[in-house]
Amino acid sequence: MSRVPSPPPPAEMSSGPVAESWCYTQIKVVKFSYMWTINNFSFCREEMGEVIKSSTFSSGANDKLKWCLRVNPKGLDEESKDYLSLYLLLVSCPKSEVRAKFKFSILNAKGEETKAMESQRAYRFVQGKDWGFKKFIRRDFLLDEANGLLPDDKLTLFCEVSVVQDSVNISGQNTMNMVKVPECRLADELGGLWENSRFTDCCLCVAGQEFQAHKAILAARSPVFSAMFEHEMEESKKNRVEINDVEPEVFKEMMCFIYTGKAPNLDKMADDLLAAADKYALERLKVMCEDALCSNLSVENAAEILILADLHSADQLKTQAVDFINYHASDVLETSGWKSMVVSHPHLVAEAYRSLASAQCPFLGPPRKRLKQS
């Protein structure tokens, strides 16, 4: 649940008159999402009104509101027999009622949201009550392989729920002597030191190019640089560091992050930047690179990204790559990247197969709970 924001200063709310007192009302909304995959969808019983329910879910471990999704594969009634019906059901509720908006969509073979439908307002739910769409999607369109909505005969539904909580009022009075504290510009100011090479005390040599930097900042941000300058190493004695395995453009992006906490060109060089972040123990930059690479996972590059993640101990990226390969196994196994990995990294192939087997055979063990970014 997000923290209630402070109200904007009255002088910034309007260029008009300023009242002596004010009130700011925040209506709290808890948002969460749920993904439900139905394997072997074409084998569902086709009687009209037949119901399939998901397991229950909530916004978190401490949330007492429990929900589930309900599907009628062949419609709810005679009117909707040519459609799939989809509903959000409130299973248990400690209150007399709650209000919530919802959005349903289908994830296609690429994991993209399609055929989205959402409620136009927050509906009133009581325990045992459901709301949804009797005519969510035509069955003939859903079952047509050309539309790519049932890869490997799996129907994957994605649901986003927004639950309306209580409202909170914050009130106060205006004073004539309003003090406005300026925003912190530390990142910009440190970035200026790097860009202008002011007050530098060490030189970093990268592929024949020299960059002036500040030992204190490098040591504070990177345990690797800290070790170089702290001990009686040649880098500490000469205040000069030779860097041979990072390209200059990648190095500059890494230094921008060290000084400012930002990497504006990360998406263009996420793979190389991940390697640099791993070498210099820049954990936050490493996770930022993992996130960017996750966003660009595809059938063509899944094997290469899995190898990269394994090489640099990028655990979150590795998990996402394995899950992606499992979901698109029939396509990924035909790529040149996968065939190369079979020869060069057989242990990763074995890991992917083990994960695929456990996903398809849940009876082999208890269900695993899916539970950071600093």
Rank of each mutant, 00 (worst) to 15 (best):
S14F: 13
I106R: 14
I52P: 03
S58Q: 06
F229I: 15
D267L: 12
I137P: 00
K180L: 06
S54C: 02
L186D: 05
R121D: 09
H345T: 12
K369Q: 02
T260V: 06
E12Y: 13
A11S: 10
V163Y: 10
I325E: 00
A314D: 09
E46W: 10
A329D: 02
N72Y: 10
R70K: 10
R370S: 07
L149K: 06
Y123H: 01
E183G: 02
E235V: 02
A219I: 14
N296G: 12
D271T: 08
S119I: 01
Q373M: 15
D315K: 06
A19V: 06
K101Y: 14
V30D: 13
P9S: 04
S330R: 01
E253M: 10
C294F: 05
S162D: 07
K215G: 07
P7G: 12
C289N: 04
L333R: 05
I170D: 07
F133W: 08
E210I: 15
I258Q: 10
E195A: 03
S15R: 03
L274P: 00
S330C: 01
R370E: 04
F324Q: 01
D77G: 07
S197T: 11
L150V: 07
K135G: 06
S33D: 13
M233Y: 11
Y83T: 14
Q360Y: 15
N239G: 10
C23K: 00
N108G: 13
H312Y: 03
S226N: 11
L69M: 07
L266T: 04
G365V: 13
C159Q: 01
F225E: 00
D152Y: 08
N196E: 15
S336L: 09
Q26R: 12
V349M: 07
N296D: 03
H328L: 03
L274I: 07
L90R: 05
P7Q: 08
K110V: 15
M233N: 14
G208D: 07
G191H: 10
A263Q: 03
M341W: 00
K279F: 09
D310I: 04
E97P: 09
P182T: 05
S340P: 01
S344I: 08
E230I: 15
A216R: 01
V164F: 10
G75E: 03
L333P: 06
S80H: 13
S340Q: 13
D144F: 13
D278T: 10
K129F: 13
D291W: 15
E234Q: 11
N39K: 04
E210R: 05
M233D: 12
S355Q: 08
N196G: 07
R185P: 02
Q165N: 11
F141A: 10
L297S: 00
T319P: 02
R368M: 15
P151Y: 04
L204T: 13
L186H: 07
N108D: 10
E183K: 04
V29I: 04
A321V: 03
M1H: 00
D63H: 15
S54N: 01
C203P: 15
G111Y: 10
E47F: 05
L155T: 07
S92K: 10
E189I: 09
K262T: 02
T37H: 06
A292T: 09
V29W: 06
P5L: 03
S6I: 09
P367D: 15
G148F: 00
E210G: 14
Y123V: 11
L317N: 00
W22G: 01
D245A: 05
C68N: 09
E183M: 02
L190F: 10
A314G: 08
I52F: 08
H347N: 04
N62R: 09
A292W: 11
E230N: 15
A329E: 07
Y123Q: 09
L89N: 15
E20W: 09
V29D: 08
S58M: 14
K318E: 10
V18E: 04
R138L: 10
S298P: 00
E210C: 12
R198E: 14
L143V: 04
A302I: 14
S14W: 01
S21G: 03
K74G: 08
C289F: 00
E304T: 13
G191D: 12
V322D: 12
W67R: 00
P5V: 09
C68W: 02
M233G: 14
N239D: 02
E118G: 11
M178D: 03
Q165P: 13
S96M: 11
V241G: 04
L107G: 15
A309P: 00
R185S: 04
P8W: 08
L317Q: 05
K180W: 06
I38V: 02
V29R: 10
M176S: 03
K129L: 10
I137G: 02
D77M: 03
L308H: 10
G365K: 12
G148M: 11
M117F: 12
M178H: 03
A350Y: 07
G49R: 01
S14K: 11
D291Q: 09
I137H: 10
R99N: 15
S330P: 06
S33T: 06
L89R: 01
E145S: 09
E232T: 09
I52R: 13
V299Y: 11
E195G: 02
V51F: 04
L204G: 13
K53A: 05
S330G: 13
E290C: 07
Q26N: 09
V30M: 04
G60L: 02
C361G: 10
A281D: 02
G111E: 08
V349S: 11
L88K: 00
E79Q: 14
S336D: 12
F104I: 11
L69G: 13
C289Y: 01
L143I: 02
L293V: 14
K95V: 06
G172Y: 03
L311Y: 13
L142P: 09
S96L: 14
N147M: 12
S358K: 11
L107K: 14
L190E: 01
Q165F: 03
I325H: 01
K110F: 13
G128E: 09
E249V: 02
I325F: 08
H345Q: 01
F57W: 00
E304M: 02
D77N: 10
N40D: 04
S374E: 14
L190P: 08
G148Q: 07
F199Y: 14
C361D: 12
L218D: 00
W131H: 00
S226H: 04
T37M: 06
I307N: 10
S21D: 05
M178S: 02
A359T: 03
N296I: 09
N108Q: 12
A277F: 00
D188T: 05
H328W: 13
I170K: 02
L348A: 10
F324N: 01
Y34G: 04
M35L: 05
F363N: 13
E249G: 04
